[in-house]
């Protein structure tokens, strides 16, 4: 199995507080990896390190290395726009732009300089199909994205992320604001998407982690406690702390 992401001795400080402690982890390509752990364990912080979103926070200091496709993404020469195009992000709350459905998808491409209408039409259709949304919106592409349901808006955000052809998709609790039906659709979508993308998902929902991920990383107080195949983590973890957390005994 090839590794899409190599994290080596990664530590992150918010001022003096050490939020990530020497995390070392390899993430498989074209697999879905879940980060789980109680609130404040550092799972979202670790996820946001993967496309350098923490850079935007004042007072953050990062040590260690994250390598994607052989390149250390914390190298000063890295183009952040390119990095974030390659490593897309879907947030907890859907955040469509105040534009039409079509324009939401085409936005990133236009920013990248693509103006050819047929090319844009093709990518919009392909991305919406990839996010399992095309059939529901194909007749109202020019309507406002705000008219979509919460679940549809979240899939629109996924379509927007994949429109710029990333290799990695980061998802920070993508279903926490969705109802069970919309959640099931997004979960099905994750299974489809991993054929083409490497998925890293942060979730508080243990059942969701067990359903959608191939690998699971359990974190606690900024440390990576255990990382293994999801079925091992949920059937027979090696570390008692993992067992106690997934069994609901703390956290």
């Amino acid at each position: 199995m090839s590794k899409a992401i190599n994290i080596r001795n990664l530590s992150l400080y918010y001022g003096k507080a050490k939020a990530l402690k020497e995390v070392t982890l390899d993430i498989e390509a074209n697999k879905s990896t879940a980060f789980i752990g109680p609130s404040g364990c550092g799972k979202s912080t670790l996820l946001r390190c993967l496309n350098r979103l923490n850079d935007l926070i004042e007072g953050v200091k990062i040590e260690g290395e994250i390598t994607i496709s052989g390149t250390n993404i914390y190298d000063p020469s890295i183009d952040l726009t390119n990095l974030r195009r390659n490593v897309g992000m879907v947030f907890q709350k859907s955040n469509p732009f105040p534009l039409s459905i079509y324009e939401n998808i085409a936005y990133g491409l236009k920013i990248a300089g693509i103006k050819d209408k047929s090319k844009l039409d093709h990518v919009v259709e392909k991305s919406l199909k990839g996010a399992a949304l095309w059939d529901e919106v194909k007749d109202r592409l020019n309507e406002s994205a705000y008219g979509l349901s919460g679940g549809q808006q979240q899939r629109l955000c996924i379509a927007r992320a994949i429109a710029v052809e990333p290799t990695i998709l980061l998802m920070d609790e993508p279903c926490s604001a969705l109802d069970p039906i919309a959640t099931a659709k997004v979960e099905e979508l994750i299974k489809e998407l991993k054929k083409d993308y490497t998925i890293v998902i942060v979730t508080h929902n243990m059942q969701q982690a067990s359903r959608v991920s191939d690998y699971t990383a359990f974190m606690f107080l900024g440390e990576l406690i255990e990382f293994d195949e999801t079925k091992t983590i949920f059937m027979n973890p090696s570390i008692q702390q993992t067992n106690d957390y997934i069994s609901g005994r703390f956290g």
């Binding site: 243990m206 949920f234 059937m235 027979n236 973890p237 067992n243 997934i246 069994s247």
Partner: peptide, 9 residues
Amino acid sequence: FQPVSEDLR
């Protein structure tokens, strides 16, 4: 309760 790990077993 969807038990996991040792509880599930």
